[in-house]
Design a protein around this nucleic acid. Structure first.
Lengths: 348, 348
DNA sequence: TTGAAAGCGTTACCAC
DNA sequence: GTGGTAACGCTTTCAA
């Protein structure tokens, strides 16, 4: 029923081996035979059998990109950058391309492991893990073991925006310095004169949540301030919305709010608006597409954003298999900060 | 080196056939043997070889979800819904799950075909195409041919939010009625008293672009209005931003602007803000997460949104392989509309 | 209920 | 440069 390599070989009057060589282009083949084979491929509309190929070659052209939340533009941008860096040619006929696919873990450690197993099962060429990871002894151990298996089976592992896995020495790592990124954000607020700063965290148990909060607190401590009000919640817009209202309920005199992620900050923006606090526009969304800009200012709202897109792009390169980004490279997070009141001065 | 099914069989003192049966669970196996096998699997930390399995079974557990822009939350939500509907259990050990992966075409017809070929090569269990498609005789023909091949090779094909492929009878289709959706949007504006309405389209050549514009024009025509100013551009925030400025340059007395997609409308919002036109908050962003709400109102900005999330969810169900949504089902688009001025009345 | 064995379609090694 | 031919690891009849 379906056309096989043998069919192509027969039509081109060559051996299957030769067809394989032409298709993979790793071996010298006479130009004449080459063309004959390609013509037969076209005429028969032959498509390589991936599983068979992967079985024989003991590797596939699948590259998995794991993200915590596919509906979050942050991950969309990361995944897109990685994917476009991997799938080089956009030419019509599929040649030796990798199949870059993104897998949505939803932030669930279980699903993460499941996807890793599924990719291991597929003998994936590479796996890219992005974003923060869940911190627990069991999950860390399980992940480390899984990554080790993948590595020894020949799958390249890349960690992007995620801390190194303890006890793992094989994964290429591009970590974000969440701690100092968050610290800088809060320092910036302090330098503007703010003293009552609310903080909205990410979900409990995640590395990014902890690191960013630590950075924030370090900045406050250095300024001799007690901990400002903090509300916990997932990296979701709705959580940011509720958290902002809760913060203002607790301390109506807050002059600034820091959201631990763009999505959260977005929700906070909406809450401020609904509370009748003047915000002139959808500043935080502006940020989503304007990552190259370090600072985006509006009349009564200031957004500071540390470079993130760059990290995304470099992640893409890494995933491609280039190794010009040394393991352990550190860049900063793309967190977001909001200052209420006029551009620089807190009110009151 | 790597553990094979034969190793498991040896350890469990059964035949490979039995191990296979236990793993796939399609065949009756004595409970005792079953447990012995599972124990051996655990002890050896065995992971099924996907390619080998797919080769023998002539099908894989891969499900591809094609999206036009992975950085666009619209597609993120769609993909997420489909993916979560497909990967049923979030249990730790990977069993008979499908590997739902999303592929980013970037709106390029070539990349779309390339991904289809790649998925065909993998003998994917199903392919879900989402969003508008590029209209050209060649591409339509190529796509139709490719989908036919996929179908006859046993791959389920689902079109979600994309018009049926001419000459194709195999794909399950969940089309959005972009024409009447857009018409309703503009009719709504007209009913509010607007007469000068700007329109920002999507990219040339796409079904969604054409259908939505047609609907918009039909509404205008029915109201006896000449075509209002229209600006073309891709489905990107930056394009919406520029387009809105351009529209207001051409006709400073516009009282409303319709964006052909959420992303575009977002950019328009930002432009209005930057022009000093009062918009009280990031309304369009509110929309992204608040899809269930049909109407979201703010003091001087009204957003109308036709149901979209529902479509997303049903798409997810479809992709799972259930067939309770008949092919050809029609729902409406998730377009967005912005009214400048007070809630209902156009200014001037 | 279980085992034996014949493929599945490529790749890659070894001759020619 | 090209052809023959063992793997590759699993699924699935067919028997027992």
């Amino acid at each position: 029923m379906t056309v096989t390599l043998a069919d192509v070989a027969a039509r081109a009057r060559v051996s299957p081996a030769t067809v394989s060589r032409v298709l993979n282009g790793n071996y010298p083949v006479a130009e004449a035979t080459r063309e004959r084979v390609l013509q037969a491929v076209d005429e028969l509309d032959y498509v390589l059998n991936g599983p068979a190929s992967s079985l024989a070659a003991a590797t596939s052209d699948l590259v998995g990109i794991l993200v915590n939340d596919i509906a979050d533009p942050f991950f969309g941008i990361m995944a897109g950058a990685a994917q476009s860096a991997i799938g080089s040619t956009a030419s019509g006929r599929a040649g030796g391309e990798k199949l870059a696919v993104v897998c949505n873990t939803g932030g669930s450690p279980e699903r993460e492991l499941m996807y890793l197993t599924l990719l291991q099962r597929q003998r994936a060429a590479a796996v890219v893990l992005t974003g923060g990871s869940y911190e627990s002894p069991e999950h860390s151990a399980a992940t480390a073991a899984k990554l080790a298996r993948l590595a020894e089976a020949g799958t390249r592992v890349v960690l992007c925006g995620r801390p190194p896995v303890p006890g793992d020495g094989t994964a290429a790592t591009l970590a974000f310095d969440n701690r100092s990124g968050a610290r800088q954000l809060t320092e910036h607020l302090l330098s503007l004169g703010h003293r009552r700063i609310g903080y909205i965290t990410g979900p409990d148990g995640y590395t990014t949540t902890r690191h960013r909060l630590e950075g924030h607190r370090a900045a406050l401590a250095a300024a001799g301030l007690d901990d400002a009000p903090t509300v916990h919640g997932p990296y979701e817009r709705a959580a940011g919305y509720e958290a902002a209202r809760e913060l203002l309920r607790r301390d109506p005199d807050l002059t600034a709010i820091v959201g631990a992620s763009d999505t959260v900050a977005l929700g906070a923006c909406a809450a401020l608006r609904d509370l009748g606090l003047s915000i002139p526009g959808d500043v935080s969304v502006t940020g989503f597409d304007d990552l190259p800009f370090a600072i985006d200012t509006a009349p009564s709202l200031t957004t500071v954003r540390l470079p993130l897109q760059e990290a995304g792009h470099r992640a893409g390169l890494l995933a491609m298999g280039t190794e010009d980004v040394p393991p352990g490279t550190v860049t900063t997070i793309g967190a977001e900060l909001m200052v209420r009141g006029s551009t620089a001065a807190p009110r009151g």
